[in-house]
C-alpha cells in the first residue's frame, strides 16, 4: 500500500489532521545522503500508554474504526525505514501534539521512491477542516516552502475546482524548479 515516501507523508499528515491539529509542520529534506521527513503537529497527542504500544501492529486506537484489530501505519513505516538504512523517532505528549521524524538512506536499494510530491501536497491541502499546513521541501541547497493559508489567500477556496487547478499548477512549478536547479547545479 505504501509504495512511495509520499504515501508515508500522506498517511502521517492525515493522522495529524484526524488528531485535531490546527497546525502541522512538514519538512522533506534530501541532502544527498538521506531523505528525511519531519511531521510535527499540535493535535491531541498520545498518552505514555498509547505511545508504548504504537509499534505493535496488533494495536490500534479504536476511535476511527471500532472493529479494526490492527494498526499498521507506524509499524510499516519503521520496518521500511530500518530496512533501508534509516530510522524513525516519535515524540508525543497527550494534549500537546506529536512529532514524528523518519529517514531513509538515499542510496539504499530498499528505499522507496520519492513519489509525486506536488500531487500528495495538493491532496493534503484539500483535506477538509480548518488547519494550517506548512510544508518545506529542500533538495541540497535549494528549497521552497508553502503554507495552506497563504495558498488559500492567493488561489481562493481549496475545494473549488479553479482554486485546486491553480494550486496544483503552482505546486508542480515549485517541484519543477527544484528539479531544474538540480540539473543545472
Amino acid at each position: 500500500m505504501h509504495a512511495t515516501i509520499c504515501d508515508f507523508i500522506a498517511d502521517t499528515v492525515q493522522n495529524s489532521i484526524e488528531a485535531g491539529a490546527s497546525r502541522i509542520e512538514v519538512s522533506l529534506v534530501e541532502d544527498g545522503a538521506e531523505v528525511q521527513v519531519s511531521v510535527k503537529d499540535n493535535g491531541k497527542g498520545m498518552s505514555p500508554d498509547v505511545l508504548s504500544r504504537v509499534w505493535d501492529p496488533f494495536y490500534t486506537e479504536s476511535g476511527k474504526h471500532s472493529k479494526r484489530k490492527v494498526g499498521l501505519g507506524l509499524p510499516l513505516l519503521r520496518q521500511t525505514a530500518e530496512a533501508s538504512g534509516g530510522n524513525v523517532s516519535l515524540e508525543s505528549k497527550s494534549g500537546s501534539g506529536t512529532w514524528l521524524k523518519y529517514s531513509f538512506a538515499a542510496d539504499n536499494i530498499d528505499t522507496p521512491p520519492l513519489g509525486d510530491v506536488a500531487g500528495t501536497l495538493l491532496s493534503l491541502m484539500n483535506y477538509p477542516g480548518s488547519f494550517e499546513l506548512e510544508f518545506l521541501h529542500r533538495r541540497m541547497q535549494r528549497a521552497y516552502t508553502v503554507s495552506r493559508l497563504e495558498l488559500e489567500s492567493a488561489a481562493g477556496s481549496l475545494q473549488d475546482a479553479v482554486g485546486i487547478v491553480l494550486v496544483r499548477d503552482y505546486l508542480r512549478e515549485q517541484e519543477k524548479e527544484l528539479e531544474n536547479n538540480e540539473r543545472t547545479a
Binding site: E150, L151, S153, A154, A155, G156, S157, Q159, D160, V162, G163, L166, V167, D169, Y170, E173, E177
Partner: peptide, 26 residues
C-alpha cells in the same frame, strides 16, 4: 516562475471570466 502574486492574478482573471460565487453558494 509561478509565484503567489501571479497565482492571485490568475485567480482574479478566472473569477472575472466565470463570475465565481462563494463556496456557500455551491
Amino acid at each position: 516562475k509561478l509565484t503567489l502574486d501571479s497565482l492571485r492574478k490568475l485567480r482574479e482573471e478566472k473569477q472575472r471570466s466565470l463570475a465565481l460565487r462563494d463556496s456557500e453558494n455551491k
